[in-house]
């Protein structure tokens, strides 16, 4: 049964908003603007799609494009700094919330942030993510190395903030 674009967008709205919060580092106003941009961008390009998984990815791709468009720089031209690989204890995540993750994302330049969201958090395959970002697989691999920077920021800063608030 064909569904209206509004139905499809309505179904995706929460997930898009959550993704937009990550991409905008937890700034709710920017996240809302990003979702509006995404849906309108998607509306202009909409083609009927019956598979929910493909619909989800279709919207996610447009969220990333809207985000990169707003950040006014393409991933292709952005410099990719070397990121030190760090060994981190996964148990250190206990007690953290999604807000901490969104705030920690601010350490990432737009390209790595978008790449990490697609691949790490939305489980896109590397090749498809590279295509959406407009980079080759090797460049994507370098963008994904920012994961360690995100982790480091997440674990150090979040714990410091919590300590400052007297939570831990």
């Amino acid at each position: 049964m064909p569904r209206t674009f509004e139905e499809l967008a309505g179904d995706q709205m929460d997930a898009l908003y959550q993704g937009a919060l990550f991409l905008s580092c937890g700034d709710a106003g920017t996240a809302e603007d990003l979702v509006v941009d995404t849906v309108m961008l998607a509306f202009q390009e909409h083609a009927a799609e019956s598979d929910p998984e493909r619909t989800r990815r279709w919207f996610e791709a447009r969220l990333v494009r809207a985000f990169l468009r707003r950040s006014e720089r393409s991933v292709q031209s952005a410099p990719v700094a070397a990121v030190e690989r760090t060994k981190l204890d996964p148990d250190a995540f206990e007690g953290l919330g999604s807000d901490d993750l969104f705030e920690a994302a601010s350490i990432l330049p737009p390209g790595p942030r978008a790449a990490l969201w697609l691949v790490l958090l939305r489980r896109w395959g590397h090749h498809d993510a590279a295509r959406v970002l407009g980079v080759d697989d090797a460049k994507l691999q370098r963008l994904l190395e920012y994961r360690d920077l995100l982790m480091k920021r997440l674990l150090t800063d979040s714990h410091l903030r919590k300590r400052a608030r007297g939570i831990s």
């Binding site: 929460d14 908003y17 959550q18 979702v35 993750l101 790490l120 995100l150 997440l154």
Partner: peptide
């Protein structure tokens, strides 16, 4: 990291949006 992001599932798009 994935589990942390999953905690955001409780965040709904606001009505204003």
């Amino acid at each position: 990291l994935l589990d942390l992001y999953a905690k955001a599932r409780s965040v709904s798009a606001p009505m204003s949006l």
